[in-house]
């Protein structure tokens, strides 16, 4: 299809979608309106189960089964990336050279690393109380580790980041979520139902029943998943090179 033709098809399709969207929006409830039936029910359910962060309650209690599906997408995407970015036969691994880092960068990166790591763990641990949770905190933890790459070099990062361990951690996080779900089933109610543990005192760390546990499982999975993902991409950028030498040797 020529570029001109493609633009015409795009304009027609885009216009039709725009008309449909505007027609649909005209019949949506008004922006900022006071009627949110699902929201109100979610808030009262969260309060009944002593979970201060209603969004965590929605994710890990009311919609815990959907979160399992989402976690599985995450797991599958990481698996796919790992498979796609393997080292192939015509590539070789080059040990990364030590790099020179400007002293201020090194200093601030190394100061920020423990702070960022602690912040991430805090965000995971307080997911049922304050904004945040396993998904957000997991990403903070994983990126905190990579400050070492900025502050020192790739070899230093590889020392604290044995990828195999994090791959196991990723699977363990996913498995922990499933095990907690099955525990709910064995405990006498339904899969992933939040009936296993006492709901605790409102607005304390141990409140919310199974929410903090599911939250921690997700935090572990996300942190490990992001580390593994970044490791695969960094390996491609830093370590893996096309093996020109042997390829030419074969031809001649």
């Amino acid at each position: 299809m020529s570029r001109r033709m493609r633009m015409w098809v795009l304009a027609t399709g885009g216009l039709a979608v725009a008309v449909l969207l505007v027609a649909g929006y005209a019949r949506l409830p008004h922006f900022g309106g006071a009627v949110h039936p699902y929201g109100e029910r979610a808030v009262s359910a969260a309060l009944a189960r002593h979970t201060a962060n209603v969004i965590s309650s929605v994710n890990f209690d009311l919609r815990a089964f959907d979160t399992l599906g989402e976690e599985t997408i995450l797991f599958g995407a990481v698996l796919g990336t790992v498979v796609l970015l393997r080292q192939t036969r015509d590539e070789r691994e080059v040990p990364p050279a030590p790099a020179e880092v400007a002293p201020p960068v090194r200093r601030y990166a190394l100061i920020m690393l423990p702070v960022a790591l602690l912040t991430g763990l805090y965000v995971v641990a307080h997911g049922q109380l304050s904004p945040g949770g396993g998904f957000q905190g997991g990403v903070v933890v994983a990126t905190a580790l990579h400050l070492l790459y900025i502050g020192a070099d790739y070899r230093a990062l590889e020392k604290i980041r044995p990828v195999g361990t994090y791959e196991v951690g990723d699977a363990a996080g996913e498995a922990a979520y499933l095990v907690l779900g099955v525990a709910g089933l064995l405990g006498g109610s339904a899969f992933l139902a939040n009936t296993l543990l006492p709901y605790g005192t409102f607005n304390t760390l141990a409140s919310g029943g199974t929410v903090p546990l599911l939250n921690a499982a997700v935090g572990m999975e996300v942190a490990c998943a992001v580390v593994v993902l970044l490791a695969r991409f960094l390996d491609q950028a830093v370590e893996i090179e096309e093996d020109n030498g042997s390829a030419m040797g074969k031809e001649s």
Binding site: H36, Y38, G39, A42, V43, A46, V54, I55, S57, V58, N59, R63, D66, T67, E70, I73, L74, A77, G133, F135, Q136, V222
Partner: peptide, 16 residues
């Protein structure tokens, strides 16, 4: 309060 259900959906959306 704003609706927590759609916020949870948006969170899901970001991660995926």
């Amino acid at each position: 309060l704003v609706d927590p259900v759609v916020q949870a959906l948006a969170l899901t959306d970001v991660v995926v």
